[in-house]
Structure formats: structure tokens, C-alpha cells
Design a protein around this nucleic acid. Structure first.
Lengths: 330, 330
DNA sequence: CTAGGCCATGTCATCGATGTCAAGCAGGAG
DNA sequence: CTCCTGCTTGACATCGATGACATGGCCTAG
């Protein structure tokens, strides 16, 4: 690790002069500049960015933490945050939290250790109180689900409303047995969506049928669908509570040759419109979510004291496609 | 920003003692420990990780840079690297390079500024010589495409071979006019795939037809397909040079009601098997790529001096699905 | 000819945490 | 009673880069 000192010694100048050359300070003679430049090259000098950042306090990086980078919804959010941050001269560092709530704290702290300027987070655990001390120095904006145990800005979709909307939509098509497929992680979000589904079920007097509600781990959605359809009185429609499960549910229906079962997915996903039948979705507008979160983050960076509406709920909309269809005769 | 000094003043001890309490040094009396702990809490002290890291040199983070997080191929690689790194007690910071080669250097340097322990990179520009000085301090492993302008480990797929394989496969099905759809970015990779395609075209004596080779920007693949099929003698098969373009090409074919045109995609993507017709792909095994790259990175971290095979080419395989079909009568 | 000013360069302190070393104090052994 | 040991605690230096300020040389205006 060559330092400015080393370069300075080699060039026969002081470290300060090396610093000046490095930072294009005009108050250096060409001759000195050249000697220093040569020394830098021959010693392969790289600035210790950590030292510079340490001195200035921050790294000009926005941290983003999401449960899963592979989820199309989060991928879209990341894209959007990335674009907005870049436009403001900051780069981004993304990290996946996985689905182990225990690891959230430690993963986030590893990210914060990088001394990012701000954090955009879609948490997985049910408690973010460990963030409290950090918030004194750095703004955090929650997306997809609100914080628990601390107060912070948040932008969430209307999980309850979207689930209600999807369920009622299926009801209006004539369905009376509508299944709910959720996953294990995403406690808060999935819970809200389940509530919305159940509220619709109650309001429409469909009766709650526990056997129609399944929560499958990421790779188990396939079996879950199979079990659902294997019942005495199988559902005629499925509400899949997020894009990740939908990516499993659809192929499962196809494999069982049961694409006659209606399907609505909470969350759009690539190719949803190109499938046969095309899949109806509740569109969450991840682009907007990412944009709003980034704007808020930068607003907090500019004027930390300012008061904002802490929680914003973003409306969702139903995109009707071919998988929205009446019950089949089958 | 409360520092150890502040806590020390509050607790009536020296900063060093605060440091000791913070690091669970046993040589502190319970009484002092308690006073310091209280002071830390009331002042909401958080350690300046930057300062600690600065002193120790590294952050325990692996940096990953890819052109686009949303690309299913890179998303799968990131997942894999993330899993492997986590198993070794390191977390990851991912950043998107976008498709502007000019920005690569600056984005990477922002990442390196975080003083990551190592870097896994799928570059977009044609010159990584700017990395040279950094390599003295930190290992870097290239994936998807080899480095240019510097020497470093790399793991790449067999772009040439895969493209050759796909083209020959289409030929064997009876196709004689096979189009190539590439994108603008990814210069190296796309170039290799084009070479493989052209080599097959030559070997099979199909004749090079410039009008069958299109390079579309990310959002222009749709028009490109339209233009291809609108020719006097349109292709009967399309070789899409990466998953990102395939995500556009397929819907375009569908919209034009031309799913009779055969299609092979370089790179698998979610739902490729569920589409109608299911899409044949050249499978790149991103999981393996990520795993190998991470293993190499950690090997370099453990024994920097060791010699390894610098460049590894990972074979690809053809996954035959329904879109592999003979030319239609149309 | 000289004072004032500009310019190139250097010295020192600083950011926050922590390793090194030593001081100070208490208790036990001789 | 004294000396040694061991334990708690603090002063200082350090990591690398850089801001504030100082120094010394040269040029120019009066």
C-alpha cells in the first residue's frame, strides 16, 4: 500500500504537494507536478479513499437494502433509485437481505459501516429498532413496508386495497372459491394483503375457508398449488400475493394443465403479458416508488430538520389481462 | 455526530476507556462500564465505522459491479455471489454500471471508495486500465467478459461456442435465413456471439447477409424485429444474443403474430419455459459462474501471491424447447 | 533600492478509533 | 514498612489525506 508519504519521499517533496498534484491544484510548478506524477506512476499510487472519505465524513453513496434483488419488483425499484441518485451525482450500493430475519441487522450494519450517506430499505424483520442510533447521523427511507420500532419516512403500496381489489375483481367474474397464495417471508406485506383478501371475502360473504389460504416458501409454491387443486372442492381462482410466488404459480398451473383456473398476481412481472393466458396483475408502480423514496431521501439530506408526511401510501391499479376470466365448466 | 470524545466527556473518563467498553475489554470496572454505557445511550452514540475501517484498512465487503441488476443473468450471478460471500462472513455491495461506458470508471471508483475487500466485475467499457493501480491492494475477478488493458482473473461463458451451437441448431432444423439480434452495449460479449454466429453461417455456407444482423438498443428490439420481418426475404429464425433482448423479441413476435418464427435466446430467463411456445435457450449457468468467481476472489484474498489459471471459459449448453422448430410454411 | 504581494511549497493539526506504553493505585508478600 | 504485582485508566501516537496557516523566494511598482 503506497501512501502519499511514499510518493512524496520518492519525488523529494512533501506529502502536501503530492496531495496538491493529485487534486489538480494550480499552485504547483509544471516541473514539480511532473516529478510527482512520475513518482505516483512508478509506485502505483492509489489514494486511500477510506482516508479521504473518513476526513470528509461521507462516501457519496446511497445504500439500498431489499429482500431479494431477483424479485422483479425490487429490481425495478433499484433501477429507479439508481437512476435518480445518479442524476444527483451519487452512486448506489445494493445489498440483499435474504429471507432470514435474523440476518437483517447484521447485513444492514455491514452496509452502514461503509458510511453511506443515506439508506433506502425494504426490511424483512419485524423490528428495526437497531437502526435508531444510526438515524441520528443518516436519513433512512422505508419502502414496501413501514418501519417497526422506530420512526422514519416510508412509502408503501396499498397492500390491503390492492388485495381487496383483486379479490373483488375475481368475485365479479363469478368466482366463489378464491384461493390466496402467500409466501413465508415478507411478514408485514403479505399479512396486509391477506387482510385485504379476507376483508373482501367477508364483505362478499364468501365465507373464510382456511384450506384456501396457503403460505409457501419460495420454492414450495408449486406443491402448494397442487395441493390446492387437489381438494374436494378446489378453488376456481387464485390470488397470488406477490410476483415471486406468481413466477411459480403460473408454471405450476401450466404443468397441471389447469390454466383454466383464473389468476391475479399482486405485482407485475416480466412476460406477464406474453404468457398464455396473459396474467392479470395488481400494478405497484415500482418506478414511482423508487423515485419518491429517492426524492425524499435527498430532501432529508438537504434539510434534515424539515417536517414531511412520514408515511405515504401509493395507490395500486388492476391491470386486467386474459387470466381474469369466469370460472370454467371443469 | 457523537464521538467517543463526547461520550468520554459525559462519562468523565478518557476516550480510550470508552473504546474499551465498546469493545468488551475485560479490564474495566463494572462501575465505569456502566457509567460509560449510560453515556453512550443518552448521547445515542454510534461508532464511526469509517474511522474504524480506516484504521484497520478494510470493510469486510465484496463489491459487485454489473451492467444491469435487472438482467436475469446478472441477477442470478449476484444471488450466487451473495450466497457464497455470506457463507464466508462477508457482505456484498452491488452497483449497476448502466450502459454508458463513460460512466463505468466513475461508478467503479465510487464503489472502490468504500474500500471493499475485493471486486467482482462484469465491465461494459473496452478499457479497464484505470483499475491497474487499485489491483495492487485488492483482488478483482472479471465475469462475463475478460478485462482489457489489465491482467486479472476472469470467468467467461463460451460466447463464441454458444452462438455457434445455437446457429447450427437452427440450421439443422432446416433454417437457412437466420437473423442475429444484438444490443448496443456489451461490446465484447455481443461481439463474440456475433463472431460465433458468423462462423457458423460461414461454415454452413449460408452466406453473410448484413440485413439479417441487427443491433438494437434496449428498448428498440421490438422495432428491430419488425424491420427484420418486414424484409423481402425475411428470416425464418432469430438468434437473440442475450436475455435482455429476448425479453423484447418474444413479445414483439407475439404482437406481430409471428411466433411461427423460430427463436433461440442466449441466456435463460424466467418464464422462458412457460411461454407459448416455450423458448429454447443457451444456458449460461450463472450460479456456477458466480460461485467460481467468488471462490477465486477469496482464494486471492487468502493467498495473494498464488498463481491461478487467469482465464476460465465456462461451457454453455443448449436447452431445447418448443421455439426450436423447423421453418413454417408461411 | 525597497516594501508589498504573489506564488510554490512546507509544517502542523485534524478527522475518530485504537494500539502502545506508562502512570497510579491497591493489596499481598517478605 | 517496603517492594512487587496486577489491575484500571489515561496520554500519546498512529492510520492517510487535507485544510489552515506559515515561510521563503522572486517580481514589480513606487
Amino acid at each position: 500500500m503506497t501512501t502519499m508519504q511514499d510518493v512524496a519521499a520518492r519525488a523529494g517533496v512533501s506529502a502536501k504537494t503530492v496531495s496538491r498534484v493529485f487534486n489538480d491544484d494550480p499552485h504547483v510548478t509544471d516541473e514539480t507536478r511532473q516529478r510527482v506524477t512520475e513518482a505516483m506512476q512508478s509506485l502505483k499510487y492509489v489514494p486511500n479513499m477510506m482516508a479521504r472519505t473518513f476526513r470528509s465524513g461521507r462516501a457519496s453513496v446511497v445504500g439500498i437494502a431489499v429482500p431479494d434483488i431477483g424479485d422483479p419488483f425490487f429490481a425495478a425499484i433499484i433501477r429507479s433509485v439508481d437512476r435518480e441518485s445518479r442524476a444527483r451525482g451519487m452512486s448506489t450500493a445494493v445489498t440483499s437481505l435474504g429471507d432470514d430475519a435474523e440476518l437483517e441487522k447484521q447485513t444492514i450494519e455491514a452496509l452502514l459501516r461503509l458510511q453511506v450517506n443515506g439508506l433506502i430499505i425494504a426490511p424483512i424483520s419485524g423490528d428495526q429498532s437497531y437502526l435508531a442510533p444510526w438515524l441520528a447521523n443518516m436519513p433512512a427511507v422505508f419502502i414496501d413496508r413501514p418501519p417497526t420500532g422506530i420512526t422514519a419516512d416510508s412509502f408503501v403500496e396499498d397492500d390491503f386495497g390492492g388485495a381487496f381489489l383483486a379479490t373483488r375483481h375475481l368475485f365479479e367474474l363469478g368466482h366463489r372459491r378464491i384461493a390466496f397464495v402467500g409466501d413465508i417471508g415478507d411478514i408485514v406485506t403479505t399479512g396486509q394483503r391477506l387482510d385485504g383478501y379476507l376483508a373482501a371475502v367477508d364483505e362478499l360473504a364468501l365465507g373464510r375457508h382456511p384450506e384456501l389460504v396457503v403460505r409457501a416458501s419460495t420454492n414450495g409454491a408449486s406443491q402448494a398449488v397442487e395441493a390446492l387443486l387437489d381438494q374436494g372442492e378446489p378453488p376456481t381462482a387464485i390470488f397470488s400475493s406477490n410476483a415471486r410466488t406468481s413466477l411459480e404459480v403460473f408454471p405450476a398451473l401450466q404443468r397441471l394443465d389447469r390454466t383454466d383456473v383464473a389468476l391475479v398476481s399482486f405485482g407485475d412481472f416480466p412476460m406477464a403479458a406474453a404468457l398464455e393466458p396473459s396474467v392479470s396483475v395488481i400494478d405497484q408502480d415500482p418506478d414511482r416508488l423508487g423515485r419518491l423514496a429517492t426524492e425524499r431521501l435527498f430532501a432529508r439530506l438537504d434539510t434534515p430538520a424539515e417536517q414531511f408526511t412520514p408515511a405515504t401510501v401509493i395507490p395500486v391499479s388492476l391491470v386486467e389481462r386474459a387470466s381474469s376470466k369466469p370460472p370454467s365448466a371443469r
